[in-house]
Design a binder for these strands. Structure first.
Lengths: 296, 296
DNA sequence: CTAATAGTGTCTTTTAGACAATATTAA
DNA sequence: TTAATATTGTCTAAAAGACACTATTAG
């Protein structure tokens, strides 16, 4: 039997199959005008959520996404969804993680491949989908609330294992809408055995396991921003170093020292000869991304 | 309409669904006795491959894996496959990446969630599966052959983009069987736009896109071993520091300086009071993993 | 002038890398 | 003894962190 004949007799419908979706964690940068001309504007990290117009989780907020078509790849599905929801086709996109617990969708078995996307605020033009009663950019913060350590000591003294639990507050807000979700990150170690997990303690108005996906996205973003140049995908063509620093700060949720930050990112940027004036304080120079800064 | 009634009328079979599999990149450590009692044994990284007994890719070598059942999670499927193939239930397991191009399986649309697993050589007991005519541990190396840079300069001078291509030789060998596969890692940058890809240039006797998965697994392993303690999952309970260093060296495919290596891993290990003697040279102390070394 | 931000200089600490020196064993 | 590996010490270079200083603007 050759491969040809095998293919003809293969029964593709023999087993019950899960459905496969992509879910998009699309981040961008928001801005709040300070009001005071002598002060610089505030910046926030934002994520796109849609209000579900249909069951299940009707009226809850969810990540945009949809079923993967039989004739498109995962990446193609992700690009298509990004385009459908935000009308941009120029964003950064990477696969985040695939979520596959059995009961994550009450309708039927759905495995979701989550993607992380970063788009620059200037290109945004959200388009509410047919499925979505409403699509909104939510301010996001993810902040440590509590930390619990319990150490499993063997009789001899040395540590045989430990459980590290960190409880974070994932806060998503848009106008008067406030979605507060507590997320527990658990690291359970027993000898060589490690088990890491993220557990959403209270789903609130978030649909499915999307709290977990968002948390995972922020964690990825925080890890990557430290040693890769992905933050520039959130920036416009030209930007001040203070703006760039604020992006790092709202991703990492901590303040950075100006001088050290500048030293670190200096190789990644090129100065333009443009400056920003009329701000009530010293004008600042505009920079742009130095494509190829990490070429040897 | 409430969620209850919605679920009843939802037609789960409305759309054609892809199949979902897990593929396992299971690594362990191999050893070649040097023959000379005055020399220490050689170590190699190994990966488990099965010889396909059925179409498609009959007689080619493939990663172990299988379809995800409708009532098990992705992680459960991965654990089950690991147990079925290696008979160990104690290994390290993490999700690697989900591969979802349309034509990666000639039979039908299959999306594969790949897992990376590390198991300690002492526990190995491979069990040839029903699907697998044969299962073998292959020595693995992944070594840079060529590097091409082409820089796209705009008229003004600064770099507008570049293409970086690195060609690696993925060599899988077991006895007289030698699977050599050239793998191209491409980084295509144009302004802000980045596109990374891994392309297998010649599949050889490797089934499906498993060359790509294996390469991805090795890349992940190399990245992680530098800043996490996963290498210990490949070690037995007690080990010498030289053995540990050799594990790092065969994962990274380069030699490390002994003194620096020891300084770096010292906080991760605890010395036992046992030593290894009768080796034809100075005896060495045995250490074990210091569970909890990274607790504050 | 002041309040705010822009931008620079320099010291210290930590980490990584290179390499030399000494120690111990079986044969 | 010797050839091999085991183990430690120290110098240098690079990166990260802290903090103080100067500069420039609108009002």
């Amino acid at each position: 039997m050759n491969q040809e004949t095998f293919l003809k007799q293969y029964d593709a419908s023999k087993y019950e199959k899960p459905s496969v979706t992509v879910d998009m964690a699309v981040f961008t940068l928001g801005q709040y005008e300070s009001g005071d001309i002598r002060k610089v504007d505030e910046r926030v990290l934002r994520i796109l959520l849609i209000k579900r117009g249909a069951h299940p989780f009707k009226d809850c907020w969810a990540l945009p996404g949809g079923f993967v078509k039989i004739d498109e790849s995962l990446d193609e599905a992700a690009y298509r969804e990004l385009k459908e929801e935000t009308n941009v086709d120029s964003g950064y996109l990477e696969q985040l993680y695939t979520f596959g617990t059995v009961d994550r969708d009450p309708r039927l078995r759905v495995i979701s491949c989550a993607y992380l996307s970063l788009i620059d605020a200037e290109h945004i033009q959200v388009r509410a989908d047919s499925d979505a009663a409403d699509a909104k950019w939510f301010d996001v913060t993810y902040r440590l609330l509590e930390e619990h350590k319990s150490i499993k000591s063997s009789d001899k003294g040395p540590v045989s294992g430990y459980i590290l639990e960190r409880i974070y507050l994932l806060r998503l807000s848009h106008g008067s809408i406030d979605l507060d979700v507590r997320v527990k990150e658990v690291i359970d170690v027993e000898g060589h055995r490690v088990h890491k997990d993220i557990v959403v303690l209270d789903e609130g108005m978030l649909a499915f396991d999307h709290g977990k996906i968002i948390a995972q996205g922020i964690i990825r973003l925080r890890n990557k921003v430290e040693y890769e140049d992905i933050a520039f995908h959130l920036m416009p063509e030209k930007f001040t170093l203070t703006d760039l620093q604020k992006v790092y700060e709202c991703i990492l949720d901590r303040e950075l020292l100006k001088a050290n930050f500048r030293r670190k990112i200096m190789p990644m940027v090129i100065e333009t000869n443009e400056i920003v004036e009329n701000q009530g304080f010293r004008p600042s120079q505009l920079f742009r991304f130095n494509t190829g800064w990490n070429l040897i």
